[in-house]
Nucleic acid binder design. Structure first.
Lengths: 176, 176
DNA sequence: CTGTATCCCAGCGGATACTG
DNA sequence: CAGTATCCGCTGGGATACAG
């Protein structure tokens, strides 16, 4: 099954153990990536999350800044709340009646690396057309998505190994 | 415009300069994130890229391992090639007739951080149901998506600043 | 201002059947 | 084995109109 005619530049993941035959675990169940896409795989979902990152909270602002139709924004926001990415929170400005605002939950905020990766990948090939750029407020340098292992090493695609886990060790506690 | 009743945990991006009013640059054009979604915003596209990362190359394997219908895989692969994420390359095994295989281009390979972010976000909330896990082949530790600035600092969401750039300083693309 | 209710269209993805 | 051609249902998203 192994092919010997691959160029070095074609290297993908290291395949080890069960993974030598990827078919063996195709039946292992739902891929985590697909689970993510079920929730944030739509344009409207990511756009609303984006505006939330930018500080948008009120329905009106979110609609205008995303450019989505109100109907779409409404339905998607309801779903984002149901999925636990956002919280619909009442608040009141003195003298006005109670309103609601949409605030990212911790789960929603944990989309940050995904958002940066999307922004970066899109801008990497746009020929410098300009637009919004994300930067480190401390030093002003642009943000870049990275991949590291739990031990802190930077990991490239060719150093990545995929493996089958039957049941991951007790949920991700405060990772030490 | 500024709200003073925000909890610390609600902090999102730091807003500075032009960005104090996000509306000011809504008209600044297409968001890089949306550009990414136009290309890899579909389930089929990311699933095919995933299998390419896992080492899949032949049409038959890609179809079986993604579980996509042949028609869908066919059309999506054609588009991925057109978008420059994959390359359709002829090859031949002695004694057999020439076949084609799909190989990730550098642009396709640069989706690696995005892929890791998607995998990680999806598995972070699955209650440890098990499945595929990505790890550092060197030390065996699990992979995590990260965000850094060009100067090498780790950057959290609350240290992130968004700003408007009219035309980015000729990054890495002499084209055009 | 903050939505919801309808109607409509385009695109994704599947099923089936057919080629080289 | 590696696709293409057709048909078709589902849903994402927009337009319009209306409500609290």
């Amino acid at each position: 099954m192994e092919r010997a005619d691959l160029h070095d530049k074609d290297t993908v993941f290291t395949r080890t153990g069960d993974f030598a035959d990827r078919d063996a675990f195709t039946a292992a169940g739902w891929c985590a990536m697909e689970r993510s896409l079920e929730v944030v795989g739509t344009r409207s979902a990511m756009m609303l999350v984006r505006e939330a990152f930018y500080g948008g909270r009120r329905f009106d602002d979110l609609v205008r800044r995303t450019g989505l139709a109100e109907t779409v924004a409404s339905k998607r926001l309801r779903q984002l709340v149901a999925d636990g990415l956002m919280e619909r929170r009442p608040y009141r400005v003195p003298g006005a009646r109670t309103r609601h605002e949409y605030v990212l939950t911790e789960r929603g905020r944990s989309l940050f690396p995904l958002f940066v990766a999307l922004m970066n990948w899109g801008s990497a090939t746009d020929g410098g057309r300009g637009g919004v750029e994300l930067a480190h407020a401390g030093c002003g340098e642009a943000l870049l998505p990275a991949v590291r292992c739990a031990a802190g090493h930077d990991v490239g695609i060719e150093e990545t190994e995929a493996r089958l886990v039957t049941s991951r060790p007790a949920a991700d506690e405060p990772s030490r």
